[in-house]
């Protein structure tokens, strides 16, 4: 859901493994150029494999960490219907994380290793989840803006060259459509509500607008990897292209809601037929990515605690399975076949 081209930011390109036959590499590129999908056991350059592992696992981590800011409001959702929808959405996000971990595992990394990378702080995930959800309106803003940005990032990846990743993304995109609509509908209800609710909605937009623009990652001019990722059809549009598309779609939606985008320099460029935004504060983005966002610590701590607290449970399940390879669990109640 949240690919931010994080792998391209500030890292050295993975050097080609010595001895990779030029023949193999040329045939591989030819397959890509012909829009053939690469599948798990196919030959692939080591750099392709590593780039994908990093990108897919970061994407998976983002989904998993993303369960927390929204999960923060499940117990306080203001109606039963909103509660149910939010649970379903967060559940979907967990599921998406799992589709992606599953795709990454086909490339030779294990779930345990990826989890270790996340919990140790070594792995990156989308910066957007390091911001707090302070009011119910934040839940609307996340659905509307963050999921909106994510969808824009994700749809092109459905045509990515690596089969399992592309297939996981197709699944994810099919399930996403309600996420954004749910968020927008929350905002609409708030802006049509009481004075306090309208203020709540505006406040949420004020806090989530710029971080949402940053989700698309820094300008490609600053990225070393975009060219190679494009050649390998892992990345299909530039960060700037996607960001601009998001802006052009979202600004009219904000106007419809009667909300003000927190940007004095926002204006319509008649010649280019695009909305133009003011400067993005990339120092905030870098700081958040490095770990000093408002909630970086809390997010990782929460997942670490859950992982540690759950260790005895996971171990017990394995111990039981080892002792009962034939199966000894109580029969399901009548009416259900196991």
């Amino acid at each position: 859901m949240y690919t931010q081209a994080l792998d391209t930011h500030g890292k050295e390109p993975v050097p080609p493994v010595a001895g990779e036959a030029d023949g193999h590499a040329a045939r591989f590129q030819a397959r890509i150029d012909e829009e053939e999908k690469i599948e798990p056991k196919d030959w692939m350059p080591e750099a392709y494999r590593q780039t994908l592992i990093r990108q897919i696992s970061q994407h998976a981590h983002s989904e998993i960490v993303g369960m927390l800011p929204e999960g923060n409001w499940i117990t306080r959702a203001p109606t039963l219907k909103r509660k149910a929808v939010l649970i379903a959405k967060v559940q979907d996000e967990g599921g998406h994380g799992m589709y992606l971990y599953s795709a990454a595992e086909t490339l030779g990394i294990s779930r345990a290793e990826m989890l270790e990378q996340l919990l140790s702080g070594a792995a990156k995930y989308s910066s957007i989840f390091n911001y707090p959800t302070l009011t119910w309106a934040d839940i609307g803003a996340i659905g509307w803006l963050v999921d909106g940005a994510a969808i824009m990032n994700q749809i092109p990846i459905c045509r990515c060259s690596y089969g399992p990743y592309a297939r996981a993304m197709v699944r994810i995109c099919k399930e996403e459509s309600f996420h954004q609509r749910q968020g927008f509908e929350i905002m609409l209800t708030l802006t049509q509500g009481t004075h306090a609710q309208r203020a709540m909605a505006q406040d949420a937009l004020n806090r989530w607008w710029w971080p949402s623009l940053m989700m698309f990652g820094p300008s490609d001019a600053d990225s070393k990897h975009t060219a190679q990722s494009m050649r390998w059809k892992i990345k299909r549009f530039s960060n700037d292209e996607l960001r601009q598309k998001f802006i052009d779609i979202t600004v009219p939606q904000a106007h419809f809601l009667g909300l003000t985008i927190p940007d004095d320099e926002l204006h319509w460029d008649e010649d280019a037929q695009h909305y133009r935004v003011g400067p993005i504060d990339w120092s905030e983005f870098h700081a958040v990515l490095k770990g000093s966002g408002p909630c970086n610590r809390e997010r990782l701590e929460a997942r670490r605690r859950a992982h540690e607290a759950g260790r005895w449970v996971r171990e017990a399940a394995l111990a039981h399975a080892a002792r009962h390879a034939g199966g000894s669990l109580p029969a399901s109640p009548s009416g259900e076949s196991t």
């Binding site: 499940i74 379903a88 967060v90 559940q91 799992m98 992982h307 607290a309 759950g310 449970v313």
Partner: peptide
Amino acid sequence: LAEWIGHAPALEEDLGLANLSLDLIG
């Protein structure tokens, strides 16, 4: 059960407990 979401012993149990919670709320 909803209090568990995001804090379960494994991701799969996050989904499992959320599923039960949804059914009960329904």
